[in-house]
């Protein structure tokens, strides 16, 4: 064991140099081949992940904003629809009232006209009846009493009768 170490120490420098140089070369090669690109990729990945997290946060905010907008628009349109329906109802009510009032006034005027016509008719009918009765009674009276009676007298007589009838 000790003899081995003693002999080995006489060999030391060459082997040590060889290993030291080879190790440095190996480190350099690994640095070029793997260490740098992989560390760079790991760094890139870390950056990308943090970027993704940020952008996800942002899109979540955007989505929330959009949803709120939609909600607002929905509420707005509902409100608008309610107001439209209300105004339509009001208009309809107004129209109905107008039509009803018109119809009432029309009916009233028709009724008045009809009353007036009826009155007129009655007056006319009364007048013609008066005349007819007067003529008839004159004719009858002249036939009966064969006495000429003045038409005006007769008429006055009939009128007084009719007046009595009217009361």
């Amino acid at each position: 064991m000790f003899s081995h170490l003693a002999v080995a120490s006489s060999l030391a420098i060459g082997d040590m140099l060889f290993y030291a140089i080879c190790f440095i070369i190996l480190m350099w090669l690994i640095k070029i081949v793997a260490w740098k690109p992989i560390n760079k990729m790991m760094q890139d990945r870390a950056d990308k992940i943090s970027d993704d997290i940020d952008s996800a946060e942002k899109s979540r905010d955007d989505a929330a904003k959009l949803a709120k907008q939609r909600q607002d628009a929905l509420a707005n349109s509902r409100h608008e629809a309610t107001s439209i329906v209300d105004s339509a109802k009001k208009q309809g009510q107004q129209q109905r009232d107008g039509i009803l009032a018109d119809a009432q006034t029309d009916a009233q005027s028709l009724k008045d006209n009809a009353k007036k016509d009826i009155e007129q008719e009655r007056q006319d009918a009364l007048a013609s009846v008066r005349n007819d009765v007067a003529d008839l009674s004159i004719e009858i009276a002249s036939k009966i009493i064969q006495k000429e009676l003045s038409a005006d007298d007769q008429k006055a007589l009939i009128d007084s009768y009719i007046e009595g009838l009217g009361k």
């Binding site: 080995a8 006489s10 060999l11 060459g14 060889f18």
Partner: peptide, 16 residues
């Protein structure tokens, strides 16, 4: 002028 151990050199190279 340096002494080298063949076993160390070969196996070292293989490992590297």
């Amino acid at each position: 002028g340096l002494t080298f151990n063949a076993a160390n050199i070969y196996s070292g190279l293989i490992a590297f």
